[in-house]
């Protein structure tokens, strides 16, 4: 049971990291685009999703979302055995993406103006500008806060126990109610969380060193 829990937690972690980074990037680009409607939509998204707890979104995607879906899709979803995991992924993603997009947007503001001008003058198209010049730098500048956010997201996966997604926290509760060996299970789970968070942090530090981020030189060149 514990091992399934670890597996599901890891699945949740991997899936939400990838999806929320993607969605967050899209929304960050929307928020800095020149088209006003996109900007307004992006800002609206961030303001709505940032100010409501992630737990609400998880519950929302589990209980309400299948009800809204047309064409009987909802019934199919409800019948799907692993729907709690899917709902957890959806809820965590929309919650985390708003933070990611905010962080990335601040990263865009930190990039010197000359970079964009240089990209235009070499004849890159707008898509190419983002793909090859702006986005890599945005990720590089914002790596520390982005990493913190990802660790936070990892901890938030424990909220999925509210909808009975069989992840680690849920498993410990289950063990507690079946065998009354709650303390052992919870200790192991807590240690696992601390261990994995430590691994994530050290990975981020390694990545920082690897990319050789020097924020101070960045701000100097901006001035």
């Amino acid at each position: 049971m514990m091992i399934t829990g670890v597996k599901v937690t890891l699945i949740l972690l991997a899936a939400t990291t990838v999806t929320s980074l993607t969605l967050g990037t899209v929304i960050a680009i929307m928020r800095i685009s020149r088209i006003k409607i996109l900007r307004v939509l992006g800002t609206l998204y961030v303001e709505i999703f940032r100010n409501i707890p992630g737990l609400f979104w998880i519950l929302f995607f589990y209980f309400v979302f299948p009800d809204i879906l047309p064409w009987g899709l909802g019934a199919k979803l409800n019948a799907y055995l692993h729907y709690p995991i899917v709902a957890g992924i959806l809820g965590l993603t929309v919650d985390n993406a708003s933070y990611v997009s905010d962080i990335l947007r601040s990263g865009r503001l930190a990039i010197p103006h000359g970079q964009r001008e240089a990209a235009i003058s070499t004849g890159l198209s707008r898509v190419q500008q983002y793909l090859h010049v702006l986005l890599p730098q945005m990720f590089r500048v914002t790596l520390p806060p982005l990493g913190t956010r990802m660790v936070h997201n990892f901890k938030n996966t424990s909220l999925c126990m509210a909808i009975a997604a069989p992840e680690l926290t849920w498993a410990t509760q289950n063990i507690e109610s079946l065998t009354f060996r709650g303390i052992e299970a919870t200790t192991i789970a807590t240690l696992f969380y601390i261990f994995l968070a430590g691994i994530m942090v050290s990975m981020i530090i390694l990545l920082e060193k690897w990319w050789k981020i020097d924020v101070s030189s960045m701000s100097q060149s901006k001035a």
Partner: peptide, 15 residues
Amino acid sequence: RATPLIMIIFWIYFF
């Protein structure tokens, strides 16, 4: 900081 809030709540409430 590395422990989820739910875990802390469980520790306090149950144990």
